[in-house]
């Protein structure tokens, strides 16, 4: 299909608090192409997560519109969009396998079929032996892989990831990034990935969108036309990193000065 896969068109959102309304996003527009890995980065509280929730239909904008394949988003649509959150949010009373199958179950798929599909996913994710374990018996990295498998199981064209590795230690985080890339290159999905890590953004994305401090606006869009796997020490990445840090630093300072 021609045209961008996801269009965010002049979207604004305010959140009502008991005292007043806090503007979270202000007239954000961006377009994400099919099979792109687009990272949204910005200082804390800039509305990155809100933007992602709006693309996923969990939050509706006050103004503007989000369109997927040209159709306005009016609510969660798991046939087209799967989501991964910072908290793996697995159902603690279900095994890893049944957690992976959760989205398929909500879709009305029979138990043997959804368990077969979920089981096929666990192997490549290094979780085969852990299929019948409960979330509390898994490490943080494994839990997040189960959450990602749950998103992949419903086989949507778009995967939205909200700081999925934010709670992990740095080594695990780097490995999870590599692992995610290998999946993305094989599955060729459109990914929108929210992070506050420059390194993660540069290693993973085809494009980085930097947001300003609250209320979030698009500050700059940076193409990363480098092949995978990437080396943080390479000159190309180092100069991109310097550029991006320049953009982010200014906004982070604003946040700190508040």
């Amino acid at each position: 299909m021609a045209g961008p896969h996801i269009v965010v068109d002049g979207v604004s959102k305010r959140f009502e608090t008991s005292a007043d309304a806090v503007p979270a996003l202000s007239e954000v527009s961006l377009a994400v192409g099919r099979r792109e890995f687009c990272t949204v980065i910005g200082p804390s509280g800039c509305g990155k997560s809100t933007l992602l929730a709006m693309i996923g239909g969990l939050v509706l904008p006050d103004a503007g519109q989000v369109r997927i394949d040209g159709q306005p988003v009016e609510g969660p649509d798991p046939r087209r969009v799967a989501m991964v959150f910072q908290d793996p949010a697995l159902l603690p009373w279900r095994t890893a396998l049944d957690n992976v199958a959760f989205g398929l179950e909500l879709r009305g798929m029979s138990r043997p079929e959804r368990r077969r599909i979920a089981g096929d996913l666990l192997g490549p994710l290094g979780l085969r032996e852990f299929a019948e374990r409960y979330p509390r018996e898994l490490s943080g990295g494994m839990r997040q892989r189960v959450a990602i498998a749950r998103a992949l199981a419903i086989d949507s064209e778009i995967v939205l990831m909200d700081e999925p590795f934010g709670a992990l230690d740095e080594q695990t985080r780097l490995l999870m990034g590599e692992w995610l890339l290998s999946i993305w290159t094989r599955a060729r999905k459109t990914v929108v990935f929210v992070t506050h890590s420059l390194q993660e953004a540069l290693l993973l994305s085809t494009r980085v969108v930097a947001l300003t401090a609250r209320p979030g606006r698009v500050k700059s869009v940076l193409e990363v036309p480098l092949p995978y796997p990437r080396d943080l020490e390479s000159p190309g990445l180092a100069s991109l990193r310097a550029t991006l840090w320049g953009e982010i630093r200014e906004e982070s300072l604003k946040t700190m000065g508040r």
């Binding site: 969990l58 969660p76 798991p78 046939r79 989501m83 959150f85 908290d87 959760f102 909500l106």
Partner: peptide
């Protein structure tokens, strides 16, 4: 009831 779990269920179409 965890809000995160409710959000996940909604995101997956519940």
């Amino acid at each position: 009831v965890s809000r995160e779990l409710v959000t996940v269920a909604r995101a997956f179409g519940a």
